[in-house]
Amino acid sequence: MILEIVAVTGGLGLLIAGLGMAILRLLRGRSIGVMLAVVAVVTVAATLAGVVAITIEMIIDGHPKNVVLTVVAVAGLVGLGVALAVARQVVAASRKLVAAVEAVTASRDYIPPAGPLPAELTTISEALDQAYGRLREGRERERALEGARRELVAWVSHDLRTPLAGMRAMVEALEDGVVADAGTVRRYHNQIRHEVDRLSHMVDDLFELSRIHAGTLRLSPRRVGVGDLVADALAGVEALAKAKGVRLTGEAGHVLPVYADADELGRALRNLVVNAIRHTPEDGAVVVRVEADERIVRLSVADCCGGIPEEDLARVFDVAFRGEAARTPGPDGGAGLGLAIARGIVEAHEGAIDVVNEGPGCRFEIRLPISEAAT
């Protein structure tokens, strides 16, 4: 008898459950309240199916049967009422969350709904807050990048126009025969070649910076000896230092190799040294040091520039920042892109770069991780 009741009750329960799942599948795009109501109805129907099975077997009859059916019916109505109340709360909380999202505008940030929310909706609200925070940071970076681009166009337009105007004047003088003596002609030719080399260097810097900003800088990392990197950088700028009357010093002890693109990282270090030479007065010194611990290699470039104003320290690596009001490039042809390029290259290596005032000048420092591949 018991097995027969269990079989009938289980069969009816499975049938009702299957019907309920089919209804929920059809209503999966509807309100949560409707779904909870369906769940409550399915629960009551399954319970009634069990009572019906018992009644069919004549275990309960007469007045007891009516009492059982009444109790089950009342319990079902109570369950349905509770389900509808919970559904209203969930729907109200969902609408509050939707209203908070719809209130977000370009001038207004996301404000989480007031009052408690169900745990799942609270998690969604926190995730939305974080997502909108990242979007806000992205917009701020985009605005800063757009401002830097406009500033770059203004600076480079000026820096290109000045040497082009000088070359045009010299070319016209040579073409018109205004300059005829061999010494002046040779000087004009040398000056034109110098300006062409300077413009070519500026174009190379612009191309490198555009690759960094576009995220298309491709690195070819391999084991690189930091001491060799410093030696190559100093050798490449030795002539510039002698012409300026600046002493160059390199201090590199036994340091583990780093896993990096030697050409790009060498360019970043060379840009820092050239910048230091450019701002160090005659008879000053530029010192390049290499230090390391178990996890990080530090390459520092110290100069005698007299220091950088505190309000400018945060802008040193910005595009076209020269630390001076005059836009006219110096004799070395700097376009204000070297430090921005150095930062992009270092960050592409998952490193960091910063600057602090120290001693008679300032100290730029590159920090690179010692990867397992390098060790």
Rank of each mutant, 00 (worst) to 15 (best):
V287I: 14
V71I: 15
H189D: 09
V51M: 06
G10E: 03
V156E: 14
V171E: 08
E126H: 10
F207N: 13
H189Q: 15
R136I: 06
V39K: 05
V274L: 12
R161E: 10
V179D: 08
V237A: 03
Q130F: 06
V156G: 04
A127P: 03
V42I: 12
R315A: 12
N271G: 05
R198N: 15
L48W: 01
V153S: 08
R88F: 10
R218I: 15
Y132C: 08
V101Q: 03
R270W: 03
A131E: 07
D312S: 04
P113M: 08
T184A: 15
L26I: 13
A214F: 05
A92K: 00
D61P: 06
I2D: 07
H194N: 09
A180Q: 09
I124T: 07
V41F: 14
P64T: 06
R267M: 10
Y110W: 14
G33K: 05
R161C: 03
A214S: 13
G306M: 02
A148R: 07
D318K: 06
E365K: 11
G361I: 13
E347M: 09
L117N: 02
L84Y: 00
A169R: 04
E142P: 01
M202C: 05
K242C: 05
T328H: 14
E358R: 09
D197M: 02
P331H: 07
T122I: 05
V196F: 11
V297S: 01
R295Y: 07
A373R: 15
V274D: 05
R367L: 07
V171T: 10
L265V: 10
G18C: 09
V153W: 06
P163M: 04
A352S: 11
A87F: 00
N66D: 10
F321H: 02
V101K: 07
Y259D: 15
R186F: 07
I23Q: 08
V68N: 04
I124N: 00
E175G: 02
Q89P: 03
D263F: 02
P118D: 01
V224Y: 02
S157E: 00
A93F: 07
G227T: 11
A325V: 01
I2F: 10
V104R: 01
G359E: 10
G166H: 05
G147Q: 13
D109Y: 00
V153C: 03
G344Y: 00
D312H: 14
R161V: 06
G138A: 13
H279K: 13
I5A: 08
D263C: 02
A40I: 13
D232V: 11
R30H: 00
H194P: 01
A314L: 06
E137M: 09
E146W: 10
V258P: 02
R363N: 01
I277S: 11
R270A: 06
I60D: 07
L14G: 11
L12T: 15
K244I: 11
P163S: 13
G81F: 09
V6D: 12
E137H: 02
A45D: 03
T122L: 09
Y132M: 10
Y110H: 02
R222L: 07
A314I: 04
H158F: 15
K96D: 05
A99Y: 00
A45L: 08
V71N: 03
L299E: 12
